[in-house]
Nucleic acid binder design. Structure first.
Length: 422
RNA sequence: GGAGGAGUGGCUGAGCGGUCUAAAGCAACGGUCUUGAAAACCGUCACCUGGGCAACUGGGUCGUGAGUUCGAAUCUCACCUCCUCCGCCA
């Protein structure tokens, strides 16, 4: 959500933002609704003033006849006022729903483009593996080593279901424990956060109202979040934070659920795209300054890059184009890891900042040094998702005999330097 | 799942149809005093929003939402959260 004053004063910017993000949003409709809203509100408030004045008079009236006369008058007056209040409520409903659809303004450095095809590589790291044998894909590798069972996964959980087993489990825990240490050292406080969340948190983070079909919903009207960001951002909702607590850095761990609506023909095999996975997520709340947001955005991005570099997996960083940005995102980098058998990079992390788009919706504020109440800024980036990370890991580190070499940094956590057939 | 009880400003807590413009205390902040501090005393001390250059001023907010009333923190209903007891359960 943006400030209505800002929207009024910068309607051209909003129109450009909508165009750049390929979102259908009519600023003029919002502004017209806002004009109506202001007019009606003033009229209603004037009537309320009058009512308040008369109410006071009723309370202090000595003469019962005079008092009854005033009450009688007010009855008629109130009927009139109620009509206007109903009209105002109708306008407000429309106003509120339009306000939730206003796109945040993308940063100037965001390239044009309609879809992820328009994303631009800005950085490349590591050398791609060359195999002197016929390499296997992650499915074959992991099935051979008894790390995963996709057939029974589908039997039990349906399409995109999977079981991780034995070394697959151990490897997952090794990555989690390593990630916990790695990101804690960078000043992030770990939290295990709810996945089952109330609607407000999804509205607040900007996943709703537009993305409902991507979410699992319970019969109680709650949702299963697709990322720990949702609960983590909800954590401080409706709070005023002491300024000295900023920035707040969280490392959220949670199961993540995604319906992957509309992606039924994509990545149908393996562990790339599943309905249920686990993720460590970095979330930052900081002071309301663009410079600070940019600084932390780069920091969040580097953190995950350093993590991947320590594992030794080749990756690149892309800057997402306008059409690939969410409604609230100002700028986003995706980090993509090399998947040898697909001969392409695959998204593993997504770093974005929002200015106060989310914190306005969630009402997360702090009192600035000048005593003014401000909405904090928010940012997030994946730390590491499992099991998707396993895809690149096993394919890149596979060896001719079908075994998998464990990256050195993981060995203390995994307890061995290879995974091989028993 | 069943039966009760409760949600008031940063905290404690009074108010239970009209001087609520929400008491009082604590904490915090500013000042006086002091070499400095403490104590004491004086003062400030919620948020959202409209109008105005400003002084100032209108409206709203007592968990949330609806309702009753000329008038609601106060009455009614629904929901949310917490507490106590019973039941069930990892």
């Amino acid at each position: 959500m943006l400030d209505i004053k800002f929207i009024r004063e910068n309607k051209d910017l909003i129109a450009l933002a909508a165009k750049k993000k390929f979102v259908a949003f009519d600023v003029e409709e919002l502004l017209a609704t806002d004009d109506l809203r202001k007019m009606k509100l003033q009229s209603v408030e004037k009537k309320r003033t009058e009512q308040n004045v008369v109410s006071d008079k009723v309370a202090s009236a000595k003469d019962p006849a005079e008092r009854d006369a005033m009450i009688f008058e007010m009855r008629k007056f109130k009927a009139d006022m109620n009509k206007e209040e109903t009209e105002l409520e109708e306008i407000m409903k429309k106003w509120r729903s339009l306000m939730l659809l206003v796109p945040n303004i993308p940063d100037m450095t965001v390239p044009d483009g309609e879809s992820d095809a328009g994303n631009m590589e800005v950085k490349k790291w590591g050398s791609l593996p060359e195999f002197d044998f016929t390499p296997k894909n992650h499915i074959e590798l992991m099935e051979n080593l008894g790390m995963v069972d996709l057939v029974r996964g589908a039997k039990v959980a349906g399409f995109r279901g999977y079981f991780l087993k034995d070394a697959g489990v151990k490897l997952s825990f090794a990555i989690w424990n390593y990630a916990l240490d790695f990101f804690s050292k960078k000043g992030f406080s770990p939290m295990i956060v709810p996945s089952l969340v109330r609607r407000e948190n999804l509205l607040g983070t900007g996943f709703l109202p537009q993305g409902e079909e991507d979410l699992y919903k319970t019969q109680d009207g709650d949702f299963l979040a697709g990322t720990g960001e949702v609960a983590t951002m909800g954590y401080h909702s409706d709070e005023i934070l002491p300024m000295e607590d900023l920035p707040k850095k969280f490392l959220a761990f949670s199961p993540c659920f995604r319906r992957e609506a509309g992606s039924h023909s994509k990545d149908v095999k393996g562990l790339i795209r599943v309905h249920e996975f686990y993720k460590f997520e970095q979330v930052i709340l900081c002071e309301a300054s663009h410079e600070t947001s940019v600084r932390f955005h780069e920091e969040l991005t580097r953190n995950t890059e350093e993590f991947i570099e320590s594992l030794g997996i080749p990756y690149h960083r892309v800057i997402n184009c306008g059409g690939d940005l969410g409604l609230g995102q100002v700028k986003k980098y995706d980090l993509e890891l090399w998947v040898p058998l697909e001969k392409k990079y695959r998204e593993i992390a997504s770093a974005s900042y929002f200015h106060d788009f989310q914190t306005r919706r969630l009402n997360i504020r702090y009192k600035d040094t000048d005593g003014k109440m401000k909405f904090a800024h928010s940012l997030n980036n994946t730390a590491i998702p499992t099991p998707r990370i396993l895809v690149s890991l096993v394919e890149n580190f596979q060896q001719g005999d079908g075994s998998i070499a464990i990256p050195e940094v993981l060995q203390p956590y995994f307890g061995s330097d290879t995974i091989s057939k028993k």
